Amino acid sequence: MSAHRPLAPALARTVLGSGPGLVLAHGAGSSIDNTYGPILQGLAAHHTVVGVDYPGSGDTPRATAPLDLDEMADQLIAAADAEGLETFALHGYSLGGPIAIRATARHPERVTALALSATLAHPNNRLTLILRTWGKLAAAGDRRLLTEFLLPHALSPQAMEAMPAEQFEEIIAYTAANIADGTVDHAELATRIDVHDDLADIRVPTLVISTTADHLVPPVLHHELAEKIPGAELAEILTGHLPMVERPEEWQQLITDFLAK
């Protein structure tokens, strides 16, 4: 049994489907719907999917103090508890990856499998600078400027250049309108996460999905996870940091095939 005291759920939840549990942890500046929207129904076809919106995302109010990685991890468990899931698989995307890793390390008896997409144990120097700028632009309140800064990092060059001008403008407008109010807090948390010490203790089947054209969280950081988590499987998908935009069907298939093993 876990040595950690049960935590009351404090984050807004999305719940879909039925079957074995699957808990989702979304990316920074986003929400469950914006990270997983194109694949939620597919994931829920064979699972009870539970996703939580971080402080300042979706229907969860923004935090009044800096975000704490352990508490965020425990909130994944609290959401599963609230939905009656004794055990469950975890999927973490981007910032959700280290949150899911920490949840697995803190509550190993609850997690049956771990899937990680476009994520990391700790930001490298380049990503740290991007995160600092991301946070400053978010704090300034110019959501379009923030979007114009992030998209060249988040989308693959192929996806960027394949869009006609009108579609590209629509993507910018949509993304700017959906930036989470808590983005400043998410970016700040991302600068100081470090779950390296958790990796060797992961004992559940693990899939690391590497987005091979990712200019935000580069593949070298994905490969590090696959190398340091015992027995982890590595899968690659030719996208930038946003597989839900560039290749949602392929992304969903990688996750569901792994969970079906």
Rank of each mutant, 00 (worst) to 15 (best):
M160E: 07
P108C: 13
A73I: 02
L24E: 07
L145M: 15
P108F: 11
G96F: 10
L7A: 13
M1C: 12
P108Q: 10
Q252I: 01
E236R: 14
E250R: 08
V50W: 03
V245Q: 11
A260G: 10
T211F: 08
L116V: 08
D70F: 04
P55C: 02
L11C: 11
P108Y: 14
P55H: 01
D214H: 06
L145C: 14
S156T: 06
A100R: 09
G96R: 05
L43M: 08
L95I: 00
Y174D: 15
T191R: 14
G84M: 13
I99W: 07
M72A: 12
G19C: 12
S30R: 05
G29T: 08
W134N: 05
G51I: 12
D68Q: 11
L67I: 03
L90M: 06
V217R: 11
G92A: 03
A73L: 07
I209P: 12
H91A: 00
H186D: 10
F88G: 04
R132F: 03
M163Q: 12
D201Y: 07
E250I: 06
A154T: 15
E250P: 01
P219N: 04
Y93L: 10
A118H: 09
N34I: 09
G58L: 10
R192P: 02
A80P: 07
L129C: 04
P164E: 13
E83L: 03
L120M: 14
T14H: 05
L238W: 04
L40V: 05
L259H: 09
G58W: 04
T175Y: 10
I77V: 15
A25Y: 01
E250K: 12
G27F: 04
A138Y: 06
A187Y: 10
L129V: 02
G19H: 13
L116G: 10
A100T: 08
R143T: 15
R62C: 06
E86H: 05
P38L: 12
I193A: 07
Y93R: 05
P248Y: 05
L238C: 14
F168G: 15
T128S: 13
K228H: 15
I229D: 09
L254E: 10
A25N: 00
V220I: 14
L114Y: 04
G141C: 04
G84A: 12
Q158N: 14
E227V: 11
P248G: 09
L95M: 12
H107Q: 03
S2T: 15
P152W: 00
A12R: 01
D70T: 14
L145T: 15
Y174T: 15
L199T: 04
L131N: 03
V49R: 02
I193S: 08
V111L: 01
V23A: 00
A105N: 06
R192E: 11
D142K: 04
P218Q: 14
E86S: 05
G42N: 02
E71N: 11
L146Q: 01
E109C: 02
G19Q: 14
P248A: 03
M163W: 00
V204W: 09
L116H: 05
A63C: 00
P66G: 09
T119D: 08
R203V: 07
A162I: 01
K136Y: 00
R247S: 12
